[in-house]
């Protein structure tokens, strides 16, 4: 292949490739600018109805019920609560009191059937001993779990 042809091939492939990739990405971006809705938004009807959506919040302590691979737990933004039912493997960071994002659809008024559960984590990193001296992570002052950080509740600053 001549150098000029090779160069032309590079230009054409990269332009076409980047355009297609760009359009694809922008499309995904647009529909995911709101990556998840809070339970309050869902219950107030601010989330799209009759289609798959993601709901995010904190897993209410003591609300997790496991039956084999079937799991049920309550997600809250400290204002409203939505019960999530899910069958499958939970990520390692799934904990009570931790942030979570579930994808699926609303079946009843406040019941959510998830086909994917992702764990969110916050921006705090520390050794376990330090976490222990601060009390249980759930009571850690200045961010963390209770009071949860704004990002975990899907609230913008």
């Amino acid at each position: 292949m001549k150098l000029r042809h090779k160069r032309l091939a590079i230009v054409v492939t990269s332009v076409v490739g980047l355009t297609v990739a760009g359009l694809f990405v922008l499309n995904a971006f647009r529909s995911n600018l709101v990556f998840f809705y809070s339970p309050t938004e869902v219950l107030e009807g601010k989330a799209p109805v009759d289609q798959r959506l993601r709901i995010g919040g904190l897993v209410v302590k003591g609300s997790v019920k496991k039956d084999g691979t079937k799991v049920q737990f309550v997600v809250t933004d400290l204002t409203s609560k939505v019960t999530v039912r899910y069958q499958g493997i939970l990520p390692d960071l799934f904990r009570e009191g931790q942030g979570v994002v579930a994808q699926g659809r609303l079946v009843a008024g406040d019941e959510f059937l998830a086909d994917e559960v992702l764990a969110k984590h916050d921006e705090n990193y520390m050794p376990p001993e330090v976490a222990a001296t601060l009390g249980h992570p759930a009571q850690k002052p200045g961010g963390g779990y209770y009071p949860p950080s704004a990002s975990e509740l899907g609230q913008k600053k």
């Binding site: 230009v11 990269s14 980047l18 960071l93 992702l118």
Partner: peptide
């Protein structure tokens, strides 16, 4: 940690766009 390799959230998507920008500049 999260349970997924990839999510189309704003942070991950904008970083991917950065890669495309670099490739565009190089091309």
């Amino acid at each position: 940690m999260w349970g997924t390799w990839w999510a189309w959230d704003a942070r991950l998507t904008s970083e991917l766009i950065l890669l495309f920008l670099y490739i565009g500049v190089m091309a």
